[in-house]
């Protein structure tokens, strides 16, 4: 079997085990949360009988391990269960609540990635090429400044200037599924810009550092002595050996775009999955919370797997063993 394929399968297997452990942790963490869902919904005045009846209706009367098995069994078949906001005769499945939100989040993350990753790589490469120049220092200073501010602050500043003072973009990003693509794009411009400012610094600095750390290698000196131009030295001789750390940072930031964008979503009223989870926690809609947590875990595992695969695929020692 090809070593790359074997590694991918190995990591996938490990990812599944991780996911199983995570599902146990999610389930038991929620189990240990204080308070009783039924009592919280029905209010202080509810009689023990009504509470019991309601618990029976949504299955809370069964022992935890049985509920876990029911839940995880459903998940394996693609069914995340019913939301606690379902009523008799009106079932709301968790998927129904989450799916559009997840799509929105992936849209936002995707657009941000398309802007931020090339920008970060480009700036990082240029900063490495012109290291210690005015340009390098300026890029470093600006990107450091943007990550030093809290996201909501950056968001409000952008909103103030780009939506209120100069109304170029919408301040609210309440997109919906039936909106035409370009309108959607226009409405998400500000959150994309905010998230870009937040994640570019990290990726750009890692690109710069990974490249510069290689510039002292004998093979870079050799390239110089072969008369290779400075730009080609960075692109052809340093970058191919720097992908592993860069890919890891990119994966980490992409995962952040999916699971960590909740503050930005709230500021711009963007209907993403982060907001869905926060809402579900507030209303103690446990199946939704569990599903969101599981989706976040899958995101992390898949993106890290991708970073590993890139590290291997760009390392000839691993790809072409002796």
């Amino acid at each position: 079997m090809h070593p790359l394929l074997r590694t991918v399968l190995q990591r996938l297997g490990l990812g599944l085990i991780t996911l199983f452990v995570v599902s146990l942790i999610i389930f038991s963490a929620i189990e240990f949360l204080p308070g009783d869902f039924a009592r919280a919904i029905l209010g202080q005045s509810a009689t023990p009988e009504t509470v019991e009846a309601f618990q029976k209706e949504i299955g809370l009367d069964k022992p935890p391990h049985e509920r876990y098995l029911n839940w995880i069994g459903g998940v394996l078949q693609g069914d995340f269960g019913s939301s606690f906001s379902s009523r008799v005769g009106f079932r709301r499945s968790v998927m129904e609540i989450i799916a559009p939100r997840l799509l929105n989040t992936l849209f936002l993350a995707g657009i941000t990635a398309l802007v931020a990753i090339p920008l970060a790589l480009g700036l990082g490469l240029l900063a490495a090429l012109y290291r210690n120049s005015i340009f390098d220092r300026a890029v470093n200073a600006v990107t450091l400044t943007t990550i030093s501010f809290p996201e909501f602050f950056v968001a409000y500043i952008l909103m103030l200037f780009l939506a209120v003072k100069f109304p170029i973009f919408h301040s609210l990003s309440n997109v919906s599924a039936d909106m035409p693509f370009f309108e959607k794009l226009q409405r998400t411009a500000l959150p994309v810009l905010t998230l870009t400012l937040v994640i570019v610094a990290h990726m750009m600095r890692m690109t710069r550092a990974a490249i510069i750390s290689l510039l002292a290698s004998p093979y870079i000196e050799m390239a110089r002595l072969k008369g290779v131009s400075p730009g080609q030295i960075i692109l052809r001789h340093a970058l191919p050996n720097a992908w592993a750390p860069i890919a890891n940072v990119i994966a980490f930031n992409l995962a952040y775009l999916v699971v960590g964008a909740v503050v930005v979503e709230v500021v711009f009223v963007y209907p993403g999955i982060g907001q869905a989870m926060v809402d579900a926690v507030r209303s103690r809609d446990i199946p939704v919370v569990q599903a969101c947590a599981l989706i976040f875990a899958v995101t992390y595992i898949l993106l890290n797997l991708l970073a590993d695969v890139i590290s291997i695929a760009t390392n000839p020692r691993l790809l072409h063993p002796r």
Binding site: Y219, A223, P240, N241, P316
Partner: peptide, 8 residues
């Protein structure tokens, strides 16, 4: 060994 670029 060190002066050849390992990536090419």
């Amino acid at each position: 060994a060190a002066s050849f670029n390992p990536a090419h």
